[in-house]
Design a binder for these strands. Structure first.
Length: 1096
RNA sequence: GGGCGGGUAGCUCAAUGGCUAGAGCGUUCGCUUUACACGCGAUAGGUUCGGGGUUCGAAUCCCCGCCUGCCCA
C-alpha cells in the first residue's frame, strides 16, 4: 500500500542521519509537528481496526463509538473534552495490544440542522422552506451537512483523535438508513410502534412538534384574566363516555340563580342579587383557549365544591355546557384573596398566620380552573382523570380553527382564523362587553419557547407515532442490563429470569461514576411512551403509507393486488406490516409499513391512494441504533458492499458489544437508554457466544438481546469561572481550534484531562485575549508548560545519550538514583493503570505530572548529571525510563511524545530487567508501541526510603541557603554530626549535588555556620558567604520556625495520647507510631532550644 | 415536587474516618545554575459554609439549615 517507507523507527531526518538532542529547539512548538505527525499516523493506517485479527483470535477487541456530533455547528470545548477522553482510552488500549476501533461519525440532528438552514436561506435569499420542493430543500440541507461534517472532522483530527477515519458514518447515510428502516419495521410489526393522539409541544412557526429539550423557558410579563362562567343546570349526559364523540351538546340549560346557590349553602351567595344568574370565576393566562374548555375544576376541599356538585357552566358565545369536576390539583385561593370562599368585604388583608409558605399561584387563584385538555398538559391530566373530552381549537399554523376538532363553536365563529394572540384580545373584548370579564391583573411567568424559531410553544393535540417503550421488553430490559450491584430496585420479574437460558453477560452495564445508574434506572421506572414523529423534512422519512376511510371492499381489493406473492393480512410476510386504526366516527385508517425502500409494493400502494407519512423520525431514533447501524446491522454483507470495504462485513461480529460509551449526563435519558433498549430488542439472543455474523432476517432478542456497551462513563460538564454553562449567547465559550492554535492540541488535551474529576461540573475561568479578541483560559498554560517540560527532558536526555549507544545486553542499574526512579516508575505505571481502569482521568494526569516533573525532572535528571557520562548502566536506565514515560504520556500528549519519539524511538541502549517495552507494531510509531509493563521486582521500598531521606535533608539545607541569600552556584560546607553512622558515599555525593555542597565534614563549623536540625540530630552549614558575616540571624530564623512547627506537632500528638479512649480503642500500631513521632519531635525540639539558647 | 452534585488557601481543584489538610496557578523573595524563564530554589496564605450528632479520632459518616448548580416532572 505504502511504497516508499523511509521512516521506520529511526530519527525522522530526510537523510536518515541521527538527530542529536542538541539539535532540538529549546521550546516545543506544536505547529512545527502536528501536521507531520498526523500525516505519518494516517499513512501508516495506525488507527485502522482490523476485525480479522479479532476473529482469528490474535487480539482482544476494544471498541468506542463516538457520540456523533450534530452537523449543525462546529465543536465546542465540551466536545473537545469528551473526545480527548475517548482518544486517551483508545490510545491506551491500542498500546496495550487491543485491536482498537474508535468509530467516528456525525448526526443529522433533525430540527437543529433544518432550522439553521432555514434561517440561512431566509437571510441570504429571503425564501422559506415552503418556497422549495421538498427534495430541493433537503438537498440544501445536505450541502450544509457536508460542509459542517468536514469542519467537525477537521476539528477532531486537529485534536489528534485516533478514530478509524476510513469507517466514518453519518446517521442518514445508506448504511445507517437501512438500520433505521429495519428497526422501524420490526417495532411496527410487533405493535411497539403505534399511532396516538397526544399533547405535544407545538411550534406554530416551524409547524412541528418539538421535544422538551428543544424548548427553553422565558419569563414573560403577561396577565391573569378573570372570566365569569355562568352556572346552569343541565340535563342529560355530560360527563359520560359520549364525550368521546367530541361534543356534549347543550341539554336544556337552565340558569342557576344566586338564591338557589345560597340555598345550597354556597358561601357569600347572598351578597348577589337573588334572581340574577350565578357564575363562577376562573383565572387564566390563556383566555383564548376557552373554546376548548370541557370542564371547570374545583378543589374538593373548597367550601364551594359541595354546593356546586352536579351543576354545570355554559361557555359564553360558544354555548357549550360543561360540567364542574372536583380535582385536588386545583390550587385553593390565598386567604387574603377576595376569591377565598370566606373572604369578607372590608376585612383587612392579613398575613397568612400559620406560617406555611403558599403556592405563589394562590395569590392569583380563584379556586376555579378552566380545563382545556387539548391545550394544557395539566388539564390533559385532569381530563384523563375525569374522562373529559379533549377539544382542539387550533390549526397547525397557530390560528383558531373549527376544522380540527372543534365542532360546536356557536357564536364564537368570529374568532376563527385569528392568531392565538389576536384571539386573546378578542375574547377579552367579548367577555368585557358581556360583563363577564371580572378583572385583569398583571402577572409574570415563564413561558415555553421554541429554541429554533423562538415562537411561543402551544401545547397541541395531534396525531403522532409512538414507540411503546413502556413495554417491559424495552424499558424493563434496559434496567435489567445493569450490573446487579448498581440496581437499586429489586422489583418485578426480570426478563432474564423469565426467559430461559438468560445469559449473565447481558447484565454487565456499568456506570462510572456509579451514581448515574440511579438516574438511568429512575428514568425507566417513570418512562412514558416515546413520540418519534417530527414534522420536518430533514431526517429519516417515516416508512408508513396510510389511507383514510378504508372500506371492507378496499381491503379485499388491496389483498388481491398485493397477493401476487402473499396475503398481506394473513401471511406472515416479511415485506409489509399493517395496522388498522378505527376513529370514533367509525372511519378506518389503514397504515402500512414497507420494509424495504426498493419494494414494488410502494407503487401499488400509492396507486391505491395510499400516501406516505410526511413526517420524519426523531433524530434519537437513528442515534439509538448507532452501535448497530455503524457496524452494518441488519445486513453486514450489504454494508460491506455499500462501503466498498469487505472488512465492514465483520465489524458487528468483532466489535459489538462495544467497550465503553463516553458521554455527558443529559444524554443518559435521551441516548444511552434508547441504545440499550434497541440493542437488546433488535440484536439476537446469545450474541456474545456467537461465531458468525447476524443474518439479515434473523429475529431480535426482544429484550433479552445483548447490551450495546459494557461501561458508560459520564464526564463532567465544563462551566466558565462563574459556574455558568458555556454558550454562544453568553459569549463565554472557548473554541478548541483557538486553543490548538495558541497552545497546541496536546496542551489542550492535558488540561482537559487534568480537569476531569468525578464531580458533575468543572470550572474553567475564561478570559478574553486582548490581542486576538478570542476567548481562552489561563488553565491551558498548565498543559503547554507540561508538554514543554517533557520536550526539554527529552532534549536533555538525548544530549546525554548522544554517541553512547550501548550493547543490547540487559543491564540492571547499580546506582541509587536509577533504582529509585525505576521504583517510582513502576509505582507510577500502576497508579496510571488503576486510574484509567476507573475512568479517573484527573488522577491519571496528576500521576503523570508528578512522575515526570517532580520525580524524573527535579530529582532523577539532576541526580544523574554528574555520572551519566561515565556510567553505561545508568544511561541504559535513563533511556528506558524516558521511553517508558513517553509511552505513558502518549495517550494524553500524542503529538509531542510522537515527535520526541522520532528522536529516541529507534535507538537501542539495552533493556532493563523487569521493565518490558514492546516495540511499535506499525512503522516505528509510538502510537503503536507497547504500554510499559513493570515487574513487581522494580519496586524497592528500601531504595525509596534512602532517597526520600536525602530529599528531606536537601530541603532543609536549601531552606537555609534561600534564607541566607547564598548565591546558587556557591559551594557551601555541610557539617554532619559525629558519633552516628555517616552517610554512605553515594548518598553524600547526591546531597552534595542537590544542595551544592563543596565539602562534607564531621568537624563543627569554626565560624559563620548555621545550625540546622535533621532527624533530631545537629547538622550545620557554613561558608555561606565570602566574608565571615554574622549568620546568626539566619540560624535564629531557621530555629525559630522549626521550634514553632515542632511545638504544634508535639501538641497534636500529646493531645491525641492524652485522650484515654485513644490508647484503648485505636489500633496499637497507630498508638505506637504516635508515641514514636512524639519522642522524635521532642528530641528535636530539645536540640532546637539548646541551639537557640546559644544565641542568648 | 422527585432525584443528583458542589461549598476546603486569592483562583481551579486534591485528600481508603488516622501523616502537622495538600498540589497547580497567582503572591512575595532570590536566581540569565550550560534541558527547560513555558524554567529553578524558597516563601506567605486555612474557623475545611453554619449548627448539632456518632466516634478514641470527622474535611470525610448521620441529621438540620444556608448558598449554588444540574437532571427529571
Amino acid at each position: 500500500m505504502e511504497p516508499n517507507e523511509t521512516v521506520t523507527n529511526a530519527p525522522a531526518k530526510p537523510d536518515g542521519s541521527t538527530v542529536a538532542g542538541d539539535e532540538l529547539p529549546k521550546q516545543y512548538r506544536p505547529t512545527e509537528h502536528e501536521g507531520r505527525i498526523w500525516a505519518r499516523w494516517i499513512d501508516a493506517g495506525a488507527f485502522h481496526a482490523d476485525p480479522g485479527r479479532v476473529l482469528r483470535g490474535e487480539a482482544q477487541p476494544y471498541t468506542i463509538l463516538i457520540p456523533p456530533p450534530n452537523v449543525t455547528a462546529a465543536l465546542h470545548l465540551g466536545h473537545a473534552l469528551n473526545n480527548t477522553l475517548q482518544d486517551i482510552l483508545a490510545r491506551v488500549h491500542r498500546m496495550r495490544g487491543f485491536e482498537t476501533l474508535w468509530m467516528p461519525g456525525t448526526d443529522h440532528a433533525g430540527i437543529a440542522t433544518q432550522a439553521v438552514v432555514e434561517k440561512r436561506v431566509w437571510k441570504e435569499e429571503k425564501k422559506r422552506r415552503t418556497d422549495f420542493a421538498r427534495d430541493e430543500f433537503v438537498a440544501r440541507i445536505q450541502a450544509f451537512k457536508d460542509e459542517y461534517e468536514a469542519t467537525i472532522t477537521n476539528q477532531l483530527q486537529k485534536m489528534g483523535c485516533s478514530c478509524d477515519w476510513a469507517r466514518q458514518r453519518f446517521t442518514m447515510d445508506p448504511v445507517c438508513a437501512r438500520a433505521v428502516r429495519e428497526a422501524f419495521f420490526r417495532l411496527f410489526s410487533d405493535g411497539l410502534i403505534y399511532r396516538g393522539k397526544r399533547l405535544v409541544n407545538w411550534d406554530p412557526v416551524l409547524q412541528t412538534a418539538v421535544a422538551d429539550d428543544e424548548c427553553y423557558d422565558e419569563e414573560v410579563s403577561s396577565h391573569f384574566y378573570y372570566l365569569r362562567y355562568p352556572l346552569v343546570h343541565a340535563h342529560g349526559p355530560t360527563t359520560q363516555r359520549e364525550r368521546e364523540q367530541g361534543i356534549a351538546p347543550p341539554q336544556d340549560a337552565v340558569p342557576v340563580t344566586w338564591s338557589e346557590l345560597a340555598a345550597r349553602g354556597y358561601p357569600n351567595a347572598e351578597r348577589h342579587p337573588a334572581e340574577d344568574q350565578a357564575w363562577v370565576t376562573v383565572a387564566t393566562t390563556r383566555p383564548e383557549t376557552y373554546l376548548g374548555d370541557t370542564a371547570v375544576a374545583v378543589n374538593p376541599h373548597d367550601l364551594r365544591a359541595k354546593p356546586l356538585r352536579g351543576l354545570h357552566v355554559e361557555l359564553p358565545l360558544v354555548g357549550r355546557v360543561i360540567p364542574i369536576v372536583e380535582d385536588s390539583y386545583v390550587v385553593l385561593p390565598s386567604r387574603t384573596s377576595p376569591y377565598h370562599p370566606e373572604f369578607a368585604p372590608g376585612q383587612v388583608a392579613e398575613e397568612a398566620d400559620d406560617g406555611t409558605p403558599e403556592d405563589p399561584k394562590a395569590k392569583f387563584a380563584t379556586g376555579f380552573l378552566k380545563v382545556t385538555p387539548a391545550h394544557d398538559p395539566n388539564d390533559a391530566e385532569i381530563g384523563h382523570r375525569h374522562t373529559l373530552a379533549a377539544i382542539n381549537m387550533m390549526s397547525p399554523d397557530g390560528r383558531v380553527s373549527d376544522k380540527h376538532g372543534l365542532a360546536d363553536i356557536g357564536d364564537a365563529h368570529i374568532l376563527v382564523g385569528k392568531t392565538m394572540a389576536e384571539a386573546r384580545s378578542l375574547v377579552i373584548k367579548e367577555f368585557h362587553a358581556r360583563g363577564l370579564l371580572e378583572e385583569t391583573r398583571p402577572y409574570s411567568h415563564s413561558v415555553k419557547h421554541s429554541d429554533r424559531s423562538k415562537a411561543v410553544i402551544e401545547p397541541y393535540l395531534s396525531d403522532q407515532w409512538y414507540v411503546k417503550v413502556t413495554d417491559p421488553r424495552l424499558a424493563q430490559a434496559a434496567n435489567e442490563a445493569l450490573v446487579p450491584e448498581q440496581r437499586t430496585a429489586a422489583g418485578g420479574i426480570g426478563m432474564e429470569s423469565a426467559s430461559s437460558g438468560g445469559t449473565t453477560s447481558n447484565n454487565t452495564l456499568r456506570f462510572y461514576p456509579a451514581r448515574y445508574a440511579k438516574t438511568y434506572e429512575q428514568w425507566h421506572d417513570n418512562i412514558r411512551d416515546w413520540c418519534i414523529s417530527r414534522q420536518l423534512w430533514w431526517g429519516h422519512r417515516i416508512p408508513v403509507w396510510s389511507k383514510r376511510g378504508v372500506t371492507p371492499e378496499d381491503k379485499e381489493r388491496l389483498k388481491l393486488i398485493l397477493s401476487v406473492s402473499y396475503d398481506p393480512f394473513t401471511d406472515d410476510s416479511q415485506a409489509m406490516a399493517f395496522q388498522c386504526v378505527k376513529e370514533p366516527q367509525g372511519t378506518e385508517t389503514l397504515h402500512c409499513c414497507v420494509r424495504s425502500p426498493d419494494h414494488r409494493e410502494i407503487g401499488l400502494l400509492e396507486a391505491e391512494g395510499f400516501t406516505q407519512d410526511p413526517d420524519v423520525l426523531d433524530t434519537w431514533f437513528s442515534s439509538a441504533l448507532w452501535p448497530m447501524s455503524t457496524m452494518g446491522w441488519p445486513n453486514p454483507a450489504q454494508a460491506a458492499s455499500d462501503t466498498g470495504d469487505p472488512s465492514t462485513a465483520h465489524l458487528l461480529h468483532a466489535f459489538n458489544p462495544t467497550s465503553v460509551l463516553t458521554t455527558a449526563r443529559e444524554i443518559i435519558t435521551l441516548w444511552v437508554s434508547r441504545m440499550v433498549m434497541f440493542n437488546r430488542y433488535l440484536m439476537p439472543r446469545g450474541w456474545g457466544n456467537r461465531t458468525d455474523a447476524p443474518q439479515p432476517l434473523e429475529p431480535g432478542g426482544q429484550g433479552a438481546g445483548p447490551i450495546p456497551f459494557h461501561d458508560v462513563f459520564i464526564h463532567a460538564v465544563i462551566q466558565d469561572g462563574e459556574g455558568r454553562k458555556m454558550s454562544k449567547t453568553l459569549g463565554n465559550g472557548v473554541d478548541p481550534l483557538d486553543i490548538i492554535d495558541s497552545h497546541g492540541a496536546d496542551a489542550m488535551r492535558f488540561t482537559l484531562c487534568q480537569m476531569t474529576t468525578q464531580t458533575q461540573d468543572v470550572r474553567m475561568p475564561v478570559v478574553r485575549d486582548s490581542k486576538s479578541g478570542k476567548n481562552t483560559s489561563p488553565k491551558f498554560d498548565i498543559g503547554r508548560n507540561f508538554a514543554n517540560k517533557v520536550w526539554n527532558a527529552t532534549r536533555f536526555t538525548l544530549g546525554m545519550l548522544a554517541g553512547h549507544e550501548s550493547p543490547a545486553s540487559p543491564a540492571r542499574p547499580t546506582d541509587l538514583p536509577s533504582q529509585w526512579m525505576l521504583s517510582r516508575l513502576a509505582a507510577g505505571v500502576e497508579a496510571c493503570n488503576t486510574a484509567l481502569a476507573q475512568y479517573e482521568f484527573s488522577e491519571y494526569a496528576q500521576h503523570l505530572y508528578d512522575l515526570v516533573w517532580r520525580d524524573f525532572c527535579d530529582w532523577y535528571l539532576e541526580a544523574v548529571k554528574p555520572t551519566i557520562g561515565t556510567d553505561a548502566a545508568q544511561r541504559t536506565a535513563l533511556a528506558n525510563i524516558l521511553s517508558s514515560l513517553l509511552r505513558l504520556l502518549h495517550p494524553v500528549l500524542p503529538y509531542m511524545t510522537e515527535a520526541a519519539w522520532e528522536h529516541l524511538g529507534g535507538r537501542t541502549f539495552g533493556n532493563v530487567p523487569g521493565l518490558h517495552l514492546h516495540a511499535p507494531r506499525k512503522r516505528g510509531l509510538l502510537c503503536t508501541a507497547g504500554w510499559p509493563v513493570c515487574e513487581p521486582s522494580l519496586r524497592d521500598a528500601a531504595v525509596e526510603q534512602r532517597f526520600s531521606r536525602i530529599q528531606s535533608l536537601v530541603a532543609a539545607i536549601r531552606e537555609v541557603r534561600a534564607a541566607q541569600n547564598v548565591p546558587p552556584k556557591r559551594r557551601i560546607t555541610l557539617h554532619t554530626p559525629a558519633g552516628i553512622p555517616a552517610w554512605p558515599a553515594d548518598e553524600a555525593s547526591l546531597i552534595a549535588t542537590f544542595a551544592t555542597i563543596g565539602q562534607t565534614t564531621e568537624q563543627p563549623p569554626s565560624k559563620g555556620g548555621v545550625a540546622i536540625t535533621f532527624e533530631a540530630q545537629p547538622y550545620a552549614v557554613s561558608d555561606l558567604a565570602d566574608a565571615s558575616e554574622d549568620a546568626g540571624e539566619a540560624e535564629r530564623a531557621f530555629l525559630s520556625k522549626r521550634k514553632g512547627d515542632l511545638a504544634k506537632e508535639i501538641a497534636t500528638y500529646e493531645g491525641r495520647l492524652a485522650n484515654p479512649g485513644y490508647a484503648q480503642k485505636a489500633p496499637p500500631a497507630m498508638v505506637q507510631e504516635t508515641k514514636d513521632k512524639l519522642a522524635k519531635a521532642q528530641a528535636e525540639l530539645a536540640l532546637v532550644l539548646t541551639k537557640l539558647e546559644e544565641h542568648g
